[in-house]
């Protein structure tokens, strides 16, 4: 059985008080509660402070390019469907640079978890507006305030018919760990958008602000009602709902490939007889 110690403890490059700490701890807790051992898990990240998370626990890691965690994660899952694959990065990486991949991944529906550290600001590049920044959010790059309307990833995911959509908050560790565990166990692409304070660059959406605005959906909330899910997903402002907002069962993308029913591609030997037949087809 996996224990939290097996996932290790490492020194980080994050600011003291960063929301990432809560997310890291929740992730370890979730993996343990799913009964997963470190070698069964592949964390795929992009670039940004969130994308460093995989370096701070024991697991297989592919820390790729900014915005491109999802294609790499899907490639790895298609090569070895036995891996538990988690794509993890920030809002800029997933929704900005990687926006097209985000939409495509939701449409494909591999058995994959997407964790987005959504602090609504660029941290690594020191404080520019992100796709989820509030309109009017003032930064050095947006001195008159961010002009574009914020991206609502949860509403987009519900609209796209993603198979599991949740929102958590870095300050509610147990609640977040539970959402992550549900997402990992879900058969399909599962999005957990995680509200996260940035103590250095986001002076608006602070721990206090989130505490005042976030509320947890209660047990009467039924995440399988699409209309209600969409209404809940669109609720983002004065009050921010946390929990599993929408889930459904859909065919897995990888099940469409007969070869993957035989396990990881690297374990399969080339069939020379089949190749000979293929060649005969060109005669």
């Amino acid at each position: 059985m996996a224990t939290i110690d097996e996932y290790g403890k490492y020194e980080t490059a994050w600011c003291p008080g960063c929301g990432n700490f809560g997310i890291l701890n929740a992730l370890k807790q979730a993996l343990v509660s799913c009964g997963l051992l470190p070698h069964q898990v592949l964390l795929v990240s992009g670039i940004g402070q969130a994308a460093k998370t995989p370096h701070y626990l024991n697991a297989n890691v592919f820390n790729g390019l900014h915005g491109r965690s999802l294609p790499a994660a899907q490639g790895a899952k298609l090569a070895n469907p036995e891996l538990t694959v988690i794509a993890q990065s920030g809002d800029g990486c997933m929704y900005g640079e990687g926006g097209n991949h985000f939409l495509a991944a939701l449409r494909r529906n591999l058995d994959l978890t997407i964790l987005v550290h959504d602090n609504r600001v660029y941290g690594l590049t020191k404080g520019q507006a992100s796709p989820t920044s509030e309109q009017g959010f003032v930064t050095k790059a947006q001195p008159h305030g961010a002009a574009s309307e914020p991206f609502n990833p949860v509403a987009v995911a519900v609209t796209m018919g993603a198979s599991f959509v949740a929102r958590g908050y870095a300050g509610f560790l147990d609640h977040l760990a539970d959402l992550m565990a549900q997402a990992v166990k879900h058969r399909g692409t599962a999005l957990v958008d995680i509200m996260q304070p940035c103590v250095s660059f986001n002076k608006i959406n602070t721990y206090k602000w989130y505490k005042e605005h976030c509320y947890q959906l209660t047990e009467d909330y039924g995440p399988t009602d699409r209309d209600q899910a969409l209404r809940t997903a669109l609720e983002f402002g004065e009050r921010i709902p946390l929990g599993v907002i929408w889930k459904t069962e859909k065919p897995l993308f990888e099940d469409r490939f007969p070869v993957l029913k035989q396990g990881p591609l690297f374990k399969q030997e080339l069939n020379k007889e089949a190749l000979r037949k293929v060649m005969t087809g060109y005669m």
């Binding site: 790729g64 491109r68 294609p71 790499a72 899907q74 490639g75 899952k77 090569a79 591609l265 690297f266």
Partner: peptide, 10 residues
């Protein structure tokens, strides 16, 4: 990036 991910996984 997908091909690189697949290659990484074998």
């Amino acid at each position: 990036n997908m091909a690189i991910g697949a290659s990484f996984a074998g």
